[in-house]
Design a protein around this nucleic acid. Sequence first.
DNA 1: CACTTGACCTGTCCGC
DNA 2: TGCGGACAGGTCAAGT
Length: 338
Amino acid sequence: MVAVAQLVELLVVVQEVAGSSPVSHPNAGQESIKTQSDHLVEWGSMPELPEVETVRCGLQRLLVGRRISEVEALSPGSFQAAPADISQHVVGATVTAARRLAKVLMIDLDNDYSLVAHLKMTGQLVIVADGGASGERWGGGHPNDSLVDRLPDRSTRVIITLDDGAARLFFNDQRKFGWMKVMPTADVGTLDFIAQLGPEPLDGDPTPEFLRRIRHHQATTVKAAILNQTVIAGIGNIYADESCWVAQVHPASRVGDLNDRQLKAILNAAIDVMTTSINLGGSTDRNYVDAEGHRGAYLGFAKVFRREGQPCQRCGTTIIKTRVAGRGTHLCPHCQRL
DNA sequence: CACTTGACCTGTCCGC
DNA sequence: TGCGGACAGGTCAAGT
Protein backbone atom coordinates (compact mmCIF):
# COMPACT_ATOMS: atom_id res chain seq x y z
CA MET A 1 0.00 0.00 0.00
CA VAL A 2 2.97 2.22 0.52
CA ALA A 3 3.76 1.80 -3.15
CA VAL A 4 0.26 2.85 -4.12
CA ALA A 5 0.63 5.99 -2.08
CA GLN A 6 3.88 6.71 -3.88
CA LEU A 7 2.23 6.21 -7.25
CA VAL A 8 -0.60 8.54 -6.35
CA GLU A 9 1.90 11.11 -5.19
CA LEU A 10 3.86 10.80 -8.41
CA LEU A 11 0.70 11.08 -10.48
CA VAL A 12 -0.02 14.38 -8.80
CA VAL A 13 3.41 15.57 -9.87
CA VAL A 14 2.73 14.50 -13.45
CA GLN A 15 -0.58 16.34 -13.41
CA GLU A 16 1.04 19.47 -12.11
CA VAL A 17 3.65 19.40 -14.84
CA ALA A 18 0.99 18.82 -17.49
CA GLY A 19 -1.15 21.57 -16.06
CA SER A 20 1.66 24.05 -16.32
CA SER A 21 1.78 23.69 -20.09
CA PRO A 22 1.60 27.03 -21.88
CA VAL A 23 -0.84 25.55 -24.36
CA SER A 24 -4.44 26.13 -23.36
CA HIS A 25 -5.66 23.05 -25.10
CA PRO A 26 -4.00 20.56 -27.40
CA ASN A 27 -6.77 20.88 -29.94
CA ALA A 28 -6.78 24.67 -29.97
CA GLY A 29 -7.22 25.83 -33.51
CA GLN A 30 -8.40 22.46 -34.76
CA GLU A 31 -11.80 22.55 -36.36
CA SER A 32 -12.78 18.93 -35.95
CA ILE A 33 -12.71 18.25 -32.25
CA LYS A 34 -14.26 14.89 -31.57
CA THR A 35 -16.73 14.39 -28.79
CA GLN A 36 -16.71 11.38 -26.55
CA SER A 37 -19.50 9.75 -28.50
CA ASP A 38 -17.84 10.28 -31.86
CA HIS A 39 -15.66 7.67 -33.39
CA LEU A 40 -12.03 8.59 -33.08
CA VAL A 41 -10.39 9.79 -36.24
CA GLU A 42 -6.77 8.84 -36.02
CA TRP A 43 -5.24 12.14 -36.92
CA GLY A 44 -2.83 11.97 -34.03
CA SER A 45 0.91 11.86 -34.02
CA MET A 46 2.68 8.54 -33.98
CA PRO A 47 5.11 7.79 -31.20
CA GLU A 48 8.21 9.52 -32.52
CA LEU A 49 11.18 10.56 -30.43
CA PRO A 50 9.33 13.27 -28.44
CA GLU A 51 6.48 10.92 -27.62
CA VAL A 52 8.87 8.13 -26.65
CA GLU A 53 10.75 10.56 -24.42
CA THR A 54 7.47 11.52 -22.79
CA VAL A 55 6.75 7.85 -22.18
CA ARG A 56 10.23 7.40 -20.73
CA CYS A 57 9.64 10.20 -18.25
CA GLY A 58 6.40 8.58 -17.17
CA LEU A 59 8.06 5.21 -16.72
CA GLN A 60 10.95 6.74 -14.80
CA ARG A 61 8.55 8.45 -12.41
CA LEU A 62 6.11 5.59 -11.94
CA LEU A 63 8.03 2.33 -12.39
CA VAL A 64 11.34 2.81 -10.62
CA GLY A 65 11.36 0.92 -7.35
CA ARG A 66 8.48 -1.32 -8.33
CA ARG A 67 8.86 -5.09 -8.37
CA ILE A 68 7.56 -7.13 -11.29
CA SER A 69 5.20 -9.81 -10.04
CA GLU A 70 3.88 -11.32 -13.25
CA VAL A 71 4.17 -11.02 -17.02
CA GLU A 72 1.32 -11.98 -19.33
CA ALA A 73 2.17 -12.04 -23.03
CA LEU A 74 -1.14 -12.04 -24.89
CA SER A 75 0.42 -11.83 -28.32
CA PRO A 76 3.55 -13.93 -28.97
CA GLY A 77 5.22 -11.54 -31.40
CA SER A 78 4.71 -8.58 -29.11
CA PHE A 79 6.80 -10.06 -26.31
CA GLN A 80 9.80 -11.73 -27.86
CA ALA A 81 11.20 -13.79 -25.02
CA ALA A 82 11.29 -17.41 -23.99
CA PRO A 83 9.15 -18.31 -20.96
CA ALA A 84 12.35 -19.24 -19.13
CA ASP A 85 13.80 -15.76 -19.70
CA ILE A 86 10.69 -14.21 -18.23
CA SER A 87 10.59 -16.44 -15.18
CA GLN A 88 14.32 -16.22 -14.52
CA HIS A 89 15.15 -12.63 -15.43
CA VAL A 90 11.96 -10.57 -15.21
CA VAL A 91 9.59 -11.88 -12.57
CA GLY A 92 10.84 -10.88 -9.15
CA ALA A 93 13.13 -8.14 -10.45
CA THR A 94 12.81 -4.50 -9.47
CA VAL A 95 12.91 -1.58 -11.92
CA THR A 96 15.93 0.69 -11.47
CA ALA A 97 15.65 3.11 -14.41
CA ALA A 98 13.88 3.93 -17.67
CA ARG A 99 16.12 4.97 -20.56
CA ARG A 100 15.71 5.82 -24.23
CA LEU A 101 17.89 5.51 -27.30
CA ALA A 102 16.30 6.94 -30.44
CA LYS A 103 12.78 5.48 -30.30
CA VAL A 104 13.79 2.44 -28.25
CA LEU A 105 12.83 2.26 -24.57
CA MET A 106 14.80 0.37 -21.96
CA ILE A 107 13.40 -0.55 -18.56
CA ASP A 108 16.42 -1.56 -16.51
CA LEU A 109 16.07 -4.16 -13.78
CA ASP A 110 18.14 -4.72 -10.65
CA ASN A 111 19.47 -8.04 -11.96
CA ASP A 112 21.38 -6.50 -14.89
CA TYR A 113 18.66 -7.43 -17.33
CA SER A 114 16.46 -4.97 -19.22
CA LEU A 115 13.05 -4.93 -20.80
CA VAL A 116 13.57 -3.36 -24.22
CA ALA A 117 10.58 -1.97 -26.11
CA HIS A 118 9.80 -0.33 -29.42
CA LEU A 119 6.33 1.20 -29.83
CA LYS A 120 6.63 1.53 -33.61
CA MET A 121 3.53 3.40 -34.87
CA THR A 122 0.63 2.33 -32.70
CA GLY A 123 2.23 1.21 -29.45
CA GLN A 124 1.43 2.75 -26.11
CA LEU A 125 2.23 2.10 -22.46
CA VAL A 126 -0.34 2.66 -19.74
CA ILE A 127 0.17 2.32 -15.99
CA VAL A 128 -2.92 1.69 -13.91
CA ALA A 129 -2.91 1.68 -10.12
CA ASP A 130 -5.73 -0.73 -9.43
CA GLY A 131 -5.57 -0.06 -5.73
CA GLY A 132 -6.38 3.59 -6.22
CA ALA A 133 -9.81 4.84 -5.27
CA SER A 134 -10.67 5.98 -8.78
CA GLY A 135 -8.19 3.94 -10.82
CA GLU A 136 -5.34 6.43 -11.10
CA ARG A 137 -3.48 5.96 -14.33
CA TRP A 138 -0.88 7.40 -16.64
CA GLY A 139 -0.46 6.63 -20.31
CA GLY A 140 1.60 7.73 -23.26
CA GLY A 141 2.35 6.76 -26.83
CA HIS A 142 -0.03 6.37 -29.73
CA PRO A 143 -3.07 8.53 -29.03
CA ASN A 144 -6.21 6.44 -29.27
CA ASP A 145 -9.02 5.38 -26.97
CA SER A 146 -6.98 2.60 -25.36
CA LEU A 147 -5.04 5.37 -23.65
CA VAL A 148 -8.06 6.19 -21.52
CA ASP A 149 -10.52 3.29 -21.79
CA ARG A 150 -10.81 0.25 -19.57
CA LEU A 151 -7.90 -2.17 -19.92
CA PRO A 152 -7.10 -4.74 -21.03
CA ASP A 153 -8.80 -4.27 -24.37
CA ARG A 154 -8.41 -5.88 -27.78
CA SER A 155 -5.17 -3.99 -28.45
CA THR A 156 -3.49 -5.12 -25.21
CA ARG A 157 -0.46 -7.29 -26.02
CA VAL A 158 1.40 -7.51 -22.70
CA ILE A 159 0.31 -7.06 -19.10
CA ILE A 160 2.98 -6.63 -16.44
CA THR A 161 1.77 -6.83 -12.88
CA LEU A 162 3.69 -4.74 -10.38
CA ASP A 163 4.02 -5.02 -6.62
CA ASP A 164 1.67 -8.01 -6.38
CA GLY A 165 -1.16 -6.21 -8.13
CA ALA A 166 -0.87 -2.73 -6.70
CA ALA A 167 -0.38 -1.54 -10.27
CA ARG A 168 -0.26 -2.89 -13.79
CA LEU A 169 1.65 -1.84 -16.88
CA PHE A 170 -0.20 -2.39 -20.17
CA PHE A 171 1.55 -2.55 -23.52
CA ASN A 172 -1.14 -1.86 -26.10
CA ASP A 173 -0.45 -1.99 -29.82
CA GLN A 174 -3.21 -1.99 -32.40
CA ARG A 175 -1.05 -3.15 -35.26
CA LYS A 176 1.39 -5.50 -33.52
CA PHE A 177 4.41 -3.86 -35.11
CA GLY A 178 5.86 -2.93 -31.75
CA TRP A 179 7.71 -5.33 -29.49
CA MET A 180 9.17 -5.94 -26.08
CA LYS A 181 12.08 -8.24 -25.36
CA VAL A 182 14.36 -9.25 -22.52
CA MET A 183 18.13 -9.17 -22.57
CA PRO A 184 21.13 -8.45 -20.40
CA THR A 185 21.44 -4.69 -19.98
CA ALA A 186 24.99 -4.85 -21.29
CA ASP A 187 23.81 -6.47 -24.55
CA VAL A 188 21.33 -3.74 -25.54
CA GLY A 189 24.04 -1.70 -27.17
CA THR A 190 25.09 -4.61 -29.32
CA LEU A 191 21.70 -4.92 -31.06
CA ASP A 192 22.37 -4.13 -34.71
CA PHE A 193 19.79 -1.39 -34.76
CA ILE A 194 21.20 0.31 -31.66
CA ALA A 195 24.83 -0.12 -32.64
CA GLN A 196 24.30 1.51 -36.02
CA LEU A 197 22.27 4.47 -34.79
CA GLY A 198 23.36 7.93 -35.81
CA PRO A 199 23.82 10.69 -33.22
CA GLU A 200 21.01 11.56 -30.82
CA PRO A 201 19.60 14.90 -31.97
CA LEU A 202 18.97 16.14 -28.42
CA ASP A 203 22.24 14.98 -26.89
CA GLY A 204 25.18 17.32 -27.25
CA ASP A 205 25.97 18.71 -30.69
CA PRO A 206 25.08 16.09 -33.30
CA THR A 207 25.96 18.37 -36.23
CA PRO A 208 29.46 17.16 -37.21
CA GLU A 209 28.55 13.49 -37.03
CA PHE A 210 25.24 14.14 -38.82
CA LEU A 211 26.99 15.90 -41.70
CA ARG A 212 29.64 13.21 -41.93
CA ARG A 213 27.04 10.46 -42.08
CA ILE A 214 24.53 12.09 -44.41
CA ARG A 215 27.27 12.75 -46.95
CA HIS A 216 27.48 8.98 -47.40
CA HIS A 217 24.03 9.20 -49.00
CA GLN A 218 24.49 11.88 -51.64
CA ALA A 219 22.26 10.26 -54.28
CA THR A 220 19.17 9.74 -52.16
CA THR A 221 16.44 12.20 -51.27
CA VAL A 222 17.04 14.30 -48.17
CA LYS A 223 13.82 12.97 -46.66
CA ALA A 224 14.95 9.37 -47.03
CA ALA A 225 18.30 10.34 -45.56
CA ILE A 226 16.97 11.97 -42.40
CA LEU A 227 14.52 9.10 -41.89
CA ASN A 228 17.52 6.78 -42.00
CA GLN A 229 18.25 6.06 -38.33
CA THR A 230 21.92 5.45 -39.03
CA VAL A 231 22.24 9.06 -40.23
CA ILE A 232 20.44 10.75 -37.34
CA ALA A 233 18.51 8.96 -34.61
CA GLY A 234 14.85 9.41 -33.85
CA ILE A 235 13.42 11.37 -36.79
CA GLY A 236 10.16 9.97 -38.16
CA ASN A 237 7.77 11.02 -40.87
CA ILE A 238 6.14 13.90 -39.02
CA TYR A 239 9.35 15.65 -37.99
CA ALA A 240 10.95 14.97 -41.37
CA ASP A 241 8.21 16.95 -43.10
CA GLU A 242 8.20 19.68 -40.46
CA SER A 243 11.97 20.07 -40.57
CA CYS A 244 12.07 20.40 -44.35
CA TRP A 245 9.33 23.03 -44.22
CA VAL A 246 11.16 25.10 -41.61
CA ALA A 247 14.42 24.82 -43.58
CA GLN A 248 12.58 25.61 -46.84
CA VAL A 249 14.02 22.55 -48.54
CA HIS A 250 12.03 20.25 -50.80
CA PRO A 251 12.00 16.75 -49.24
CA ALA A 252 12.78 15.18 -52.62
CA SER A 253 15.99 17.21 -53.01
CA ARG A 254 19.04 15.03 -53.47
CA VAL A 255 21.47 15.28 -50.57
CA GLY A 256 24.30 15.94 -53.03
CA ASP A 257 22.46 19.02 -54.32
CA LEU A 258 22.25 20.59 -50.85
CA ASN A 259 25.00 22.56 -49.13
CA ASP A 260 26.01 22.15 -45.49
CA ARG A 261 24.08 25.26 -44.49
CA GLN A 262 20.84 23.71 -45.79
CA LEU A 263 21.51 20.37 -44.12
CA LYS A 264 22.29 22.12 -40.83
CA ALA A 265 19.05 24.09 -41.14
CA ILE A 266 17.10 20.84 -41.45
CA LEU A 267 18.86 19.34 -38.44
CA ASN A 268 18.36 22.45 -36.33
CA ALA A 269 14.70 22.58 -37.30
CA ALA A 270 14.25 18.96 -36.25
CA ILE A 271 15.89 19.70 -32.90
CA ASP A 272 13.71 22.77 -32.35
CA VAL A 273 10.45 21.08 -33.24
CA MET A 274 11.18 17.96 -31.20
CA THR A 275 12.27 20.00 -28.19
CA THR A 276 9.07 22.02 -28.38
CA SER A 277 7.02 18.87 -28.66
CA ILE A 278 8.65 17.32 -25.59
CA ASN A 279 8.03 20.49 -23.59
CA LEU A 280 4.37 20.34 -24.60
CA GLY A 281 4.12 16.88 -23.12
CA GLY A 282 4.05 14.61 -26.14
CA SER A 283 0.98 12.47 -26.54
CA THR A 284 -0.30 11.33 -23.19
CA ASP A 285 -3.71 10.61 -21.74
CA ARG A 286 -3.75 14.12 -20.30
CA ASN A 287 -3.72 15.87 -23.62
CA TYR A 288 -5.77 13.21 -25.33
CA VAL A 289 -8.90 13.97 -23.33
CA ASP A 290 -9.71 17.54 -22.38
CA ALA A 291 -11.74 18.85 -19.47
CA GLU A 292 -14.98 18.42 -21.42
CA GLY A 293 -14.18 14.83 -22.29
CA HIS A 294 -13.40 15.63 -25.92
CA ARG A 295 -10.98 13.13 -27.38
CA GLY A 296 -8.37 13.83 -29.98
CA ALA A 297 -4.68 13.81 -30.49
CA TYR A 298 -2.27 16.65 -30.41
CA LEU A 299 -0.65 17.90 -33.60
CA GLY A 300 -1.00 21.61 -32.98
CA PHE A 301 2.67 22.37 -33.62
CA ALA A 302 2.55 21.03 -37.17
CA LYS A 303 2.98 23.51 -40.01
CA VAL A 304 2.57 21.05 -42.88
CA PHE A 305 1.96 17.53 -41.53
CA ARG A 306 -1.65 16.58 -42.36
CA ARG A 307 -2.35 20.15 -43.38
CA GLU A 308 -2.76 19.55 -47.10
CA GLY A 309 -5.30 21.97 -48.55
CA GLN A 310 -4.55 24.59 -45.92
CA PRO A 311 -2.54 27.77 -46.57
CA CYS A 312 1.18 27.78 -45.83
CA GLN A 313 1.75 29.88 -42.70
CA ARG A 314 4.71 31.57 -44.38
CA CYS A 315 3.42 32.44 -47.86
CA GLY A 316 -0.22 31.40 -48.09
CA THR A 317 0.28 28.87 -50.85
CA THR A 318 -1.84 25.75 -50.46
CA ILE A 319 0.00 22.89 -48.74
CA ILE A 320 0.10 19.73 -50.85
CA LYS A 321 0.52 16.08 -50.04
CA THR A 322 2.69 13.92 -52.24
CA ARG A 323 4.90 10.87 -51.96
CA VAL A 324 8.65 10.93 -51.27
CA ALA A 325 10.79 8.02 -50.14
CA GLY A 326 7.66 5.87 -50.20
CA ARG A 327 6.02 8.01 -47.51
CA GLY A 328 3.16 10.44 -47.44
CA THR A 329 4.90 13.82 -47.65
CA HIS A 330 3.52 17.28 -46.93
CA LEU A 331 5.10 20.46 -48.27
CA CYS A 332 4.59 24.00 -49.51
CA PRO A 333 5.20 23.99 -53.26
CA HIS A 334 6.23 27.66 -53.16
CA CYS A 335 8.60 27.69 -50.15
CA GLN A 336 10.10 24.30 -50.90
CA ARG A 337 11.29 23.93 -54.47
CA LEU A 338 13.37 21.33 -56.18
C1' DC B 1 27.75 -0.85 -51.13
C1' DA B 2 23.87 2.57 -52.15
C1' DC B 3 19.29 2.82 -52.84
C1' DT B 4 14.29 1.42 -53.44
C1' DT B 5 10.36 -1.33 -52.65
C1' DG B 6 7.47 -4.54 -50.28
C1' DA B 7 6.16 -6.92 -45.98
C1' DC B 8 4.68 -6.91 -41.43
C1' DC B 9 -0.45 -5.78 -39.04
C1' DT B 10 -4.97 -3.74 -37.84
C1' DG B 11 -8.36 -0.38 -38.43
C1' DT B 12 -10.45 3.44 -40.94
C1' DC B 13 -11.99 5.83 -44.87
C1' DC B 14 -13.59 6.20 -49.58
C1' DG B 15 -15.79 4.89 -53.76
C1' DC B 16 -18.79 1.69 -55.99
C1' DT C 1 -25.60 -1.40 -46.71
C1' DG C 2 -21.57 -4.13 -47.71
C1' DC C 3 -17.21 -4.79 -49.86
C1' DG C 4 -12.66 -4.11 -51.96
C1' DG C 5 -8.85 -1.31 -52.02
C1' DA C 6 -5.85 2.43 -50.55
C1' DC C 7 -3.65 4.20 -46.75
C1' DA C 8 -1.34 4.93 -42.24
C1' DG C 9 4.22 4.50 -40.97
C1' DG C 10 9.08 2.28 -38.26
C1' DT C 11 11.96 -1.03 -39.41
C1' DC C 12 13.71 -5.07 -41.70
C1' DA C 13 14.37 -8.11 -45.62
C1' DA C 14 14.73 -8.65 -50.28
C1' DG C 15 15.03 -6.57 -54.47
C1' DT C 16 17.54 -3.61 -58.31
